Amino acid sequence: MAKPNKKAPTSTVNIYCAKCRTQLYKYKKGGKGALVKCFKERISEDYTTTPCHCPGCDSMFARDTLVRGTPAFKMIGGKVMMK
């Protein structure tokens, strides 16, 4: 499988908890599709205190995993929203 592109995309999206609307990340996302995974190297600002847990409501919104050999957070469906 191919690795993700080395050059990060220029478009930045804000990622929020769907339950309490607390901001979780600023992320450099490529493409127009839904947010399925976040590569750790593309997170520009991290507002969480513990990985994969919302600082506002302490709900788990992602799982720590490897995607194509690169560390990433795999998002749980319906737990996050992006703007």
Rank of each mutant, 00 (worst) to 15 (best):
residue 21 R to S: 15
residue 48 T to I: 10
residue 73 F to E: 03
residue 53 H to V: 07
residue 28 K to T: 06
residue 65 T to Y: 08
residue 23 Q to N: 06
residue 31 G to N: 09
residue 75 M to I: 15
residue 16 Y to Q: 00
residue 59 S to W: 00
residue 62 A to N: 01
residue 53 H to P: 03
residue 60 M to P: 07
residue 41 E to Q: 15
residue 62 A to E: 00
residue 38 C to E: 03
residue 46 D to K: 09
residue 82 M to A: 15
residue 36 V to F: 14
residue 45 E to Y: 00
residue 52 C to S: 06
residue 67 V to I: 15
residue 43 I to M: 08
residue 21 R to Y: 10
residue 29 K to E: 08
residue 24 L to I: 02
residue 58 D to S: 13
residue 1 M to N: 13
residue 6 K to H: 11
residue 9 P to H: 11
residue 17 C to A: 01
residue 63 R to G: 06
residue 16 Y to N: 02
residue 80 V to T: 04
residue 73 F to L: 13
residue 67 V to G: 05
residue 36 V to D: 14
residue 56 G to S: 04
residue 82 M to P: 01
residue 72 A to C: 12
residue 1 M to W: 10
residue 4 P to E: 04
residue 4 P to Y: 02
residue 14 N to Y: 05
residue 83 K to N: 12
residue 29 K to A: 10
residue 75 M to D: 03
residue 45 E to F: 00
residue 49 T to R: 14
residue 81 M to C: 08
residue 28 K to Y: 06
residue 15 I to L: 13
residue 53 H to L: 09
residue 44 S to L: 07
residue 64 D to Y: 00
residue 40 K to Y: 03
residue 33 G to S: 15
residue 21 R to E: 11
residue 75 M to L: 14
residue 72 A to P: 01
residue 41 E to W: 13
residue 76 I to E: 04
residue 7 K to V: 11
residue 62 A to Y: 04
residue 35 L to G: 01
residue 61 F to A: 00
residue 20 C to H: 08
residue 33 G to C: 15
residue 71 P to K: 12
residue 82 M to W: 10
residue 56 G to W: 03
residue 56 G to F: 06
residue 47 Y to K: 06
residue 42 R to Y: 07
residue 65 T to E: 12
residue 16 Y to R: 03
residue 83 K to D: 12
residue 70 T to Y: 06
residue 49 T to C: 15
residue 43 I to G: 02
residue 77 G to Q: 12
residue 49 T to F: 12
residue 37 K to E: 07
residue 20 C to E: 07
residue 69 G to N: 09
residue 62 A to M: 00
residue 6 K to Q: 12
residue 8 A to V: 13
residue 23 Q to K: 11
residue 31 G to C: 10
residue 7 K to D: 07
residue 26 K to D: 07
residue 12 T to K: 12
residue 18 A to P: 00
residue 40 K to V: 09
residue 83 K to C: 14
residue 13 V to D: 00
residue 3 K to G: 07
residue 64 D to T: 07
residue 59 S to E: 05
residue 67 V to P: 03
residue 26 K to I: 02
residue 77 G to S: 14
residue 31 G to S: 11
residue 76 I to P: 01
residue 10 T to R: 09
residue 4 P to C: 10
residue 15 I to H: 03
residue 12 T to Y: 05
residue 27 Y to T: 03
residue 71 P to V: 08
residue 37 K to C: 09
residue 65 T to D: 08
residue 23 Q to Y: 01
residue 22 T to P: 05
residue 48 T to E: 04
residue 20 C to A: 10
residue 49 T to L: 15
residue 17 C to M: 03
residue 40 K to G: 04
residue 57 C to G: 03
residue 27 Y to A: 00
residue 41 E to K: 15
residue 18 A to M: 01
residue 75 M to W: 07
residue 1 M to I: 12
residue 27 Y to H: 04
residue 60 M to R: 15
residue 77 G to N: 12
residue 34 A to F: 04
residue 77 G to K: 13
residue 25 Y to F: 11
residue 7 K to C: 06
residue 78 G to R: 10
residue 35 L to D: 02
residue 29 K to M: 12
residue 30 G to M: 10
residue 42 R to F: 08
residue 55 P to W: 06
residue 77 G to A: 14
residue 3 K to E: 09
